[in-house]
Amino acid sequence: MKNRKNLYVLGGIALLAIIPLIAKTIDNGYLQTLTFFVMMFVSMSVAWNIIGGYAGQISFGHGTFWGLGAFTTAIFAIRTGLPAWLAMPIGGLVAMLYGMSWGYPTLRLRGPYFAIATIGIGEATRLIMLNLDQLLKNSPLDWLVKDKPFTGGASGLILPSPNDFQANQLLLFYICLGFMILTIAISAWINNSRFGLALRAVNMDQEAAETLGVSASRYKVLALMVSAFLVGVAGSLYAQYVLFIDAREVFSFSNSIAMVLMPTVGGIGTLWGPALGALVFKVADDRLSSARFMLGGMQINLGDVNLMLYGLLLVLIILFEPGGVLGLLKRLRKK
C-alpha cells in the first residue's frame, strides 16, 4: 500500500520533470508556463494549509506574503545586481517576519482576531507599497529613492533580464518543481510530527489543548511563520518568472482568495487535498477564464462572474462536503 503511494508520487515527479522537454513540440511552451504556475499554486495552497488547515486559523491575507516575496526579490535583484534566485530565502524571511509582527498579537487570543486582521493586512500593505516611494522622499531614508524607485509605486518594478531568457525559464521551472516537493514534504512532516499534533489539537479545542500542556499561541505563530515563509518564496519565484511586478497586481485580493479557495476545494487540513485543489483550480481557471455563455440574451464572460463562482463553491462545500474533493472521493470509495 505504502509502496504504491510512493510509486504514484515518484511517477508524478517524473512526469512533471519531462514536461519542459515535450512542451515545445506540443504548444510552443505554453504547457511549461502553465505547469510552472500550477506548481507554484500547489506550493502556495499547501503552505496556506499549514496555518489555515492544520491550525484552523483562516487567513484571507496570504497574498500579502506572496507579494512581499516578489518585491523583496525585485528590489534585491535591482539593487545588488546579483542573480535574483539568491533572494528566494530572503523573500521568505521578509514575509515571515512581517507575518510574525501582526500574527503574534492576533494569534495570541482565541476567537476570530487573526482571520479578521488578515482581511485588513492585504489592503494596508498594498497602500504602503504603492505610496512607499512618496513617503520615503524627504525622510531620513531619502537615499533609498534618490536615483531609482524603491517599490516603483503604481508603475511597478522591472527586474534585470537574464542573459538567456529561455534557459532562465527552464531553470526556474526546475527550481519551482523542487520547491513544490519541499513544501509538500514539510507539510507531510508537520502532519506526522508532534508539531502537527499540537496544531490539530489547538484547532479542535484550544482550551482543552492548553490544559494538556500545549502552548497554543507559540505553535500557532510558528505555523504562521512556516506558512508565510513558503508563500514568500513562491512570490519570489513569480517575480523571477514574469520579470515585472507592480504593487496593485501582486497585492491584489485575488491571490488571497485563491489561497483560501484551493485548499477548501481540495480538502482543508489534509496533506494532499490542498495540492489537488490547486491543480483543479488552476487548470479550470486557465481553461474557463476565457469562456463565455449566453444568459437570457446577454453574453456573460465567465471571467466576469468568477468571484460569484468562487463564493458559490465555498458556500456549497461548507454546506454539503466540508471535506472537499478529497472527502467526496473518500465517501464515494466507501460506497
Binding site: A198, A209, T211
Partner: peptide, 27 residues
C-alpha cells in the same frame, strides 16, 4: 491538569492521538 465538565475530546482524532496530546505536551 484538569478535565472539563462537558467532555471535550479532540473530536476528529483517534483515541490514541487524544491521549498522545497529553503524553507529548504534558510533563
Amino acid at each position: 491538569v484538569s478535565t472539563h465538565q462537558i467532555v471535550r475530546p479532540f473530536r476528529e482524532m483517534t483515541v490514541f492521538d487524544n491521549v498522545r496530546v497529553g503524553a507529548e505536551f504534558g510533563r
